[in-house]
Design a protein around this nucleic acid. Structure first.
Length: 547
RNA sequence: GAGGGCGUAGCUCAGUGGUAGAGCGACACGUUGCCAACGUGUAGGUCGAGGGUUCAAGCCCCUUCGCCCUCUCCA
């Protein structure tokens, strides 16, 4: 990964944001090649998801898939985020273990579940299980566990650290009262030295070491700022943590002002912001990032078919732009992993060098039901119902009576920065047998440099021929990427530079070109060469770039 | 937020208190003319930042910023 990061900087793909001021954690800038690579990725998404959705495939209803674009604001009305659940859900209280050498960090609302899964709690539970009712016998069992398994699994439990004191307290606190050891919270609390009262009021031991936890602290996962000329906290607004809500909020307008009919999708690309606890892994977890989200609205009865449709297509799509290998997987979420609103979610995941052998999420395809539209209808009082004139019982005149419903929504939400990073990681290849061992096998469709034109020598009229060819190619392909033109230095170095930049084809003008109007085409991935007529170059490139 | 590692030329790094270094890269000129080639030369550094100790700090101490790894979260 270090080699990839070094190449990204060396060739101008990705720089650290504000680098000359020491950088700023969780923010990254794209250099010239990175900016173009990401634009190509965004354009490919726009083309294949909105302009020609799913490559013109027919959906589960047998019709062509219809989608429209939208561009909504980063700052929305604060109530949008109350309705969406982000104000509540994105302010998770965190607790931290205070024991030296542990200091683990947990989400407070996950603690109960983590305690149940905790190794030492399970061991204790197993030991105590059969004798859970006996008074003296139970104390003996716990004491025995504390001096053996407890010592090994949870060194910071009170019963391990101060056995005598812990046992005294246990006897005093837990010999009577309204609690039961079949509730692991009390069982775990007892050996950690917590009183019944403390456990009842929510105090818990560390699931890892059994030590004391800090008070819950608020972690602010949404960035906020203040609108208006006067700095008044009453005017607090948030930077969006996802683009999706802008789409839901404008759903009604899109339906009312365009001729879309259910089923259809609304796509939106743009920046989102999350104040990540720990930005990490290069651009993978950034605090400012770009999403490409489609919200696809359909009738509840068809929602599962559409969910499968988009899940499968999104997987195919990522393959089509170069993530074709074993590093790409589709993973269906387990039931207990689903968000509170979701009835089904799968992730397109890529095996990044820093996640290997595990995978990191590129895109989530979520079946969101009608959660979001319903939430906004409740909070805003605006009707989100759709009147579907193709449904309902048939009328005598042959028309349909119609049906009102709040549409269900399938959300394929891709991370463009993660996508760009995955493309780079997948493309990065090292072959020590090549003169230029490091190169990027970028798919021609996303490659930021589409072609390079080199005069073999910087004299004898060759530069002029090269320049003319470069101008021609630029006119035809310049919208989708750079056409490089370089006459300096020996040809090997120029090829090597293009290899690192991921340029798929180099065209070289030599002395023969002057005689027979042919040029050399060099293929980046194989290094092989062939001669073609100079007037066939743009046709060759058109075919290779796929339009 | 806690722990660990790191920060010296564009890049990779050497430099254990006494004149700021190497290789690669960049640039110029020359030779060669299809794969990071050769020769000559040039430019490039407040040693991440701030403070302290010392006659003297890249090196020792304190603070701070950033990166990487681990813990939590996620597109």
């Amino acid at each position: 990964m270090d080699a990839i990061m070094a190449l990204c900087k060396r060739r101008g793909f990705i720089y650290q944001a504000s680098e000359i001021y020491g950088g700023i954690n969780g923010f990254w800038d794209y250099g010239p090649l990175g900016a173009q690579l990401k634009k190509n990725l965004r354009d490919a998404w726009w083309q294949d998801m909105i302009m020609n959705p799913a490559w013109g495939k027919r959906g589960p209803d047998g019709e062509k898939v219809r989608c429209v674009p939208l561009e909504t604001c980063i700052i929305q009305h604060p109530k949008v985020w109350e309705a969406s659940g982000h104000v509540a859900g994105f302010n998770d209280p965190m607790v931290q273990c205070t024991e030296e050498g542990c200091n683990k960090l947990f989400r407070a609302d996950h603690l109960d579940a983590m305690l149940k899964e905790s190794e030492w709690v399970r061991s204790l539970h197993d030991a105590v299980g059969p004798t859970a009712h006996g008074g003296k016998e139970l104390l003996d069992t716990i004491a025995k566990w504390g001096s053996k398994s407890g010592k090994k699994l949870a060194p910071n439990l009170l019963i391990v650290r101060n056995f005598k004191f812990a046992m005294q307290q246990l006897e005093r606190e837990y010999s009577f009262g309204n609690f039961t050891f079949s509730d692991v919270r009390y069982l775990a609390g007892a050996v950690a030295g917590l009183s019944v009262h403390q456990v009842s009021s929510g105090v818990k031991p560390c699931p890892v070491c059994g030590g004391m936890l800090s008070e819950p602290r608020q972690f602010n996962l949404m960035f906020d700022t203040i609108t208006g000329a006067v700095r008044d906290p009453a005017n607090k607004v948030y930077l969006r943590p996802e683009t999706a809500q802008g789409i839901f909020v404008q759903f009604k307008n899109v339906v009312d002002t365009t001729r879309v009919r259910i089923p259809f999708g609304i796509g939106n690309t743009g920046r989102s912001f999350r104040n990540e606890v720990t930005p990490r892994n290069f651009t993978f977890r950034s605090r400012e990032f770009e999403q490409a989200e489609l919200e696809f609205f359909c009738h509840p009865d068809e929602s599962h078919a559409w969910y499968k449709f988009w899940r499968d297509f999104r997987m195919e799509w990522w393959k089509s732009i170069g993530l074709a290998g074993e590093n790409l997987i589709l993973r269906e979420h387990d039931k207990d992993e689903l968000s509170h609103y979701s009835v089904g979610t799968s992730d397109v995941e890529y095996r990044f060098p820093f996640t290997a052998p595990g995978f990191g999420e590129l895109e989530g395809i979520a079946h969101r039901g009608n959660y979001d539209l319903t939430q906004h209808q409740t909070h805003s009082k605006a009707k989100m119902e759709y009147f579907d004139t193709t449904r309902g019982e048939t009328l005598p005149n042959g028309g349909k009576k119609g049906e009102r419903y709040i549409p269900h929504c399938i959300e394929p939400a891709a991370g463009l920065d993660r996508g760009a990073l995955a493309l780079i990681c997948e493309a990065y290849t090292v072959d020590p047998s090549r003169p230029s061992p490091e190169f990027l096998k970028l798919h021609p469709r996303v490659a930021p440099i589409k072609a390079a034109i080199f005069p073999l020598m910087d004299k004898d009229g060759l530069p002029e021929i090269a320049e003319k060819l470069a101008d021609e190619l630029f006119a035809k392909f310049g919208r989708s990427g750079f056409i490089e033109h370089d006459a300096k230095q020996n040809i090997g170095k120029r090829y090597a530079r293009m290899d690192e930049a991921g340029c798929p084809y180099c065209f070289t003008i030599d002395a023969d070109t002057v005689k027979d109007q042919t040029v050399t085409v060099r293929d980046r991935d194989t290094g092989s060469q062939q001669r073609i007529a100079i007037d066939k170059v743009s046709g060759f490139l058109l075919e290779k770039l796929g339009g």
